[in-house]
Nucleic acid binder design. Structure first.
Lengths: 189, 189, 189, 189
DNA sequence: CATGAATGAGAATTCATTCAT
DNA sequence: AATGAATGAATTCTCATTCAT
């Protein structure tokens, strides 16, 4: 079934990209790691970029789903913390994918820039919405611009989580979450 | 003189990388932009990777120098803000360089991982030192661990600055600095 | 079919090497002569060295096949002469190949030393076996050690044949064969 | 003094060529191994080929001197054996140089073919002269052509000696000499 | 006499893509 | 739906040679 082939290609690409970055991957490697012939990549995705593009959409889709599920009708600030926690959990559990995001997200004309802009927007809109609730509850200082704060929060979350994994793996997730919360609480007072 | 050749190559590479990203550059282009023959790159750096490696050290050296110069005997929190501002200025002025930093810094084994670990440490030690002063002045909450905060601050700065350049170029630098300061002020209360 | 591509590359390489030597060939030339794209060489052999390595095995295989075919149930000394004649014929017909054999065979660590040691052994075992028959027929002096004689005979054959081709091309093959036979007859008395 | 520089370059080249062959050497390596700057090679020899050329002449000159010294007014066949023994001794003592000779001597258009033809002739004339004496003493069969035999003897000597060094280093020089003598005695009866 | 930084033509190698099966 | 041999443009890298000091 085609779905399993695509899935296998996604997983192999993720696995390889974790250590070598997206740009450094060859279609040969990906196909070999997925246990399919090279032509199969082209049959299923049309091109290398097509595969990467699909992979990015797939991964971000998963992240967005989780984030959306994490929001609830609780108190706004708690909801924000829940968002952060969910984000941290996802990143820790999908390190390879997250590394790809940081690696490619801010690369200027980067090959996947268009897709990434779209995906970034999808995530940010979720964060912005939650920040908006916090603001509506009067818990955000007036001089904080929501879209800026959302972008900053997303980037910080990504980077802090990866730094944790790469350079301070002995820290617990709760510990890392708390570091970010300290910042957020400062912000939301 | 060899130093000037290396210097010219660094500058040409940085220049090109700012608009096109480091990964996509060819040695031909770099040499042409620097006004030297292609062989000269290999004579001086051994390989394309050798050039990038040297460039990373050079760039981080520059950043560290600026950061060190930004610290002064003023009030600790102001000193911290000065550090942030200097960092922002540097990143905005060396976009290509900063992009490679984010792209490679958190890649697991990564080609330049060894170099980057060293360089990360060089920057972090400066940030840590300043945070220490802030703490000594009693301006940091007790539950904030300095080395964690330093790593988070560095990553956040990098990412927020790049996000600004890539997705919100119309914002002013002062504006962006203020976004980060809001966070810091929350932290340092 | 892949076999025919490899075959074509072997033949083209051998052809070119006969007039220009193996070391001086470029992959471009070889591919052009074989009527395939340059990438095909890399697809099939991985590298220029890989091609040469495979070619050595292929060539020695051919030589060994011919030598084995040349042995028959005739009188032992005649069989030995037949071996020599076959060897001469092969070398004369594959000059480029033989040159690389002499060039590389006795080079201390040499790029293809491992391959060549194996190949040398394959040829020598055939020669040894024939010398053994001569000895069993009581036609070899007692003080001649077979493995030493085999190695000497192989080397001599190679060198004499190449010397003929390079410096005395006007001599006939029969003439050259006779020169070696004179030595062998002295030996087998 | 220039002589010592040339000498150092000869020795370094010989040393390197022993394991890697002449063609694979770079001027950089040679200069580094000799402890001089690259320009010095060009100052002294004009080109890489000039260095190799001079080296070949130098080495063969040494060999020719020894061979000439080995001939004496003794009985012709003994003189021939003395020639062989001296040749063996030289080769064993100058393995690197000898490997170069075998590697390059029969390479068809080889870059140093002209020089090598001359040098080959220098050695062969010595061998031919001695064989002539043997013939004059009535110790050579009528069907042996002297110049052919000389070429064969030279090649065989070279190859057998190298085979000894590379593949059967445990044998004594006397042992190896005896192997060749067996052939020669058969020839000279 | 000697140096070594710089050169650039030439060679090896990579890799996304195509296409006949 | 999948394959994998073949391609060739693009790139990296090599190295003999030059030349100003």
């Amino acid at each position: 079934m085609s779905e399993s082939t695509k899935q296998r290609l996604f997983e192999a690409t993720l696995e390889l990209a974790t250590s070598r970055g997206l740009a450094g991957l060859t279609v040969d490697e990906i196909a070999a790691a997925a246990g399919v012939a090279k032509g199969t990549v082209y049959y299923n995705f049309g091109s290398k970029d097509g595969l990467i593009d699909a992979l990015l959409r797939y991964g971000v889709g998963q992240l967005a789903d989780r984030l959306r599920a994490a929001r609830d009708d609780r108190e706004p600030v708690e909801g924000l913390e829940s968002l952060v926690d969910t984000g941290l959990e996802f990143i820790a559990g999908h390190r390879g994918f997250s590394q790809i995001l940081v690696s490619e997200m801010w690369r200027t004309p980067g090959q996947w820039q268009d897709t990434l802009s779209l995906l970034r927007e999808e995530i940010l809109s979720i964060v912005r919405e939650q920040l908006r609730r916090v603001a509506d509850a009067g818990r955000l200082p007036d001089d904080v611009e929501i879209s800026t704060a959302a972008a900053g929060l997303f980037g910080t979350l990504l980077v802090v989580a990866l730094d944790w994994q790469a350079f301070q793996p002995q820290r617990s997730r709760a510990d890392v979450r708390e570091s970010i919360m300290v910042l957020l609480r400062g912000l939301t007072r």
